[in-house]
């Protein structure tokens, strides 16, 4: 064994930092949704084959594989189909715990998306609860879900389980 080899140690750990930059292309359909958020409206898209309304649409109906060409403006109101109460603090948390994240099914939509539920104690959030979107002030609106500050209860009677069981 040479002197150099005798003085070396075997490599047991190798760090190889990797960093890649990307330019994200949301696509035609998601761009419509994002531009809607910048105006303070929810824009979904309807499948010409099955009639289902997706929000946000990724451009095609995942059932039929056809383009969802028809743009549908949806109301700010909907129902909580399911939810979870966050009790665990984590780095970068922007909301005081406990808080509630819910799947919100907008009226007229056939798919739910995630939203924050506020103006109600976490232990009072329930499946079927009617909610409405609270938007950020007009000058803060942008092409991002951050335009939706949160959802809050409307006080209307809860939706019947049968009306949303398909979306769980």
């Amino acid at each position: 064994m040479s002197g150099a080899e005798a003085g070396t140690q075997p490599v047991t750990v190798l760090e190889t930092p990797i960093h890649l930059d990307y330019v994200f292309t949301p696509g035609i359909a998601q761009s419509i949704f994002l531009r809607g958020l910048a105006r303070g409206v929810f824009l979904g898209q309807r499948c010409p084959t099955c009639g289902k309304v997706y929000i946000p649409s990724r451009g095609s109906c995942p059932v039929d594989g056809v383009a969802t060409d028809e743009v549908v403006e949806l109301p700010d109101t909907g129902i909580v189909t399911t939810y979870c109460v966050v009790n665990v603090p984590f780095a970068g948390q922007a909301v005081e715990i406990p808080y509630t994240c819910a799947q919100v099914l907008l009226d007229g939509a056939n798919i739910s998306f995630m939203g924050l539920i506020q103006e109600v104690p976490a232990d009072q959030v329930r499946m079927g609860m009617r909610v409405e979107a609270v938007w950020v002030p007009p000058d803060e609106l942008g092409p991002s879900l951050a335009s939706v500050k949160y959802f809050r209860p409307t006080g209307e009677p809860d939706a019947l389980y049968e009306s949303y069981e398909e979306y769980l």
Binding site: T25, P26, G27, I28, A29, Q30, S31, R58, G59, S60, G65, V66, A67
Partner: peptide, 16 residues
Amino acid sequence: REASRNEVELLMPVVS
């Protein structure tokens, strides 16, 4: 550069 369509939108007409 496919500037406006995402992967699904690029693929859908090809599959059709």
